[in-house]
Design a protein around this nucleic acid. Structure first.
Length: 212
DNA sequence: CTCCCGATAT
DNA sequence: ATATCAGGAG
């Protein structure tokens, strides 16, 4: 089957299964989403939400994070992995926000990529989910795993996967596509033990059809 | 490529 | 015990 036709069917079926698929990180403004997304690296969104519930009470502006003590900030996010690195990223990123952008989160890919701890995945998420600016497709662990299993892409590096996906997913679906794959990745197409028998797209999946 | 790294599922 | 979790930097 043509890969674009496969993408169309995957989106149709997953949309029926997850009609309310959207970002799982909780946030009230662009700054909160930026921080949450930096924190979410190699960590479940659920735990990020637990930590940020308290964190965003304590730190309300970019300036609050920028002038925070690094040790204290690290301690406040300790239950998340990579907490020392992430504390540095957040403090430094917020210092730049205050210095260059009046404490606000910039609206361009180029500006976001200058922030430490921010690459295309994080920038795509922030732009799309706060400003409605869809420049690409965020490739996280779920988008990567499912795209590879289904057989939508051949590449192994996130940036190359994003490029391949941008060529086969219609642009008007760039926003919903990663949300659908993430929802399916968390509930059915699990990393360790995928529940293939209950999967609504198993007939379209290379990983399934090649072994069954 | 390695390193960062705690919490949870298997 | 080990793999995995909405990755990114050096």
């Amino acid at each position: 089957m043509d890969v674009k036709q496969k993408v169309k069917l995957v989106i149709e079926r997953l949309k029926t299964l997850y009609p309310d698929a959207k970002i799982a990180l909780k946030f009230e403004n662009p700054l909160q989403l930026l921080i949450s997304t930096i924190l979410s690296a190699q960590c479940t969104d659920e735990r990020v939400n637990e930590v940020t519930a308290k964190l965003f009470q304590k730190y309300r502006t970019a300036e609050d994070f920028a002038k925070a003590s690094l040790e204290e900030l690290a301690e406040d996010i300790k239950s998340i992995g990579f907490y020392q690195q992430k504390a540095k990223y957040i403090k430094e990123a917020c210092r730049i926000l205050v210095e260059k952008y009046k404490g606000e989160v910039p609206k361009t890919m180029e500006s976001l990529l200058e922030l430490p701890g921010v690459a295309r995945k994080t920038a795509n998420i922030v732009l799309a989910n706060t400003y409605g600016i869809v420049e690409g497709i965020p490739v996280d662990t779920h988008v990567r795993r499912l795209s590879q299993r289904i057989g939508l892409v051949k590449a192994n590096q996130p940036e190359k996967i994003e490029k391949e996906l941008m060529e086969i997913v219609p642009k008007e679906k760039w926003f919903i596509f990663p949300h659908l794959l993430q929802a399916h990745g968390r509930k059915v197409c699990l990393a360790r033990k995928p529940k293939c028998e209950e999967c609504v797209i198993k007939d379209l999946c290379d990983a399934y059809t090649s072994t069954n």
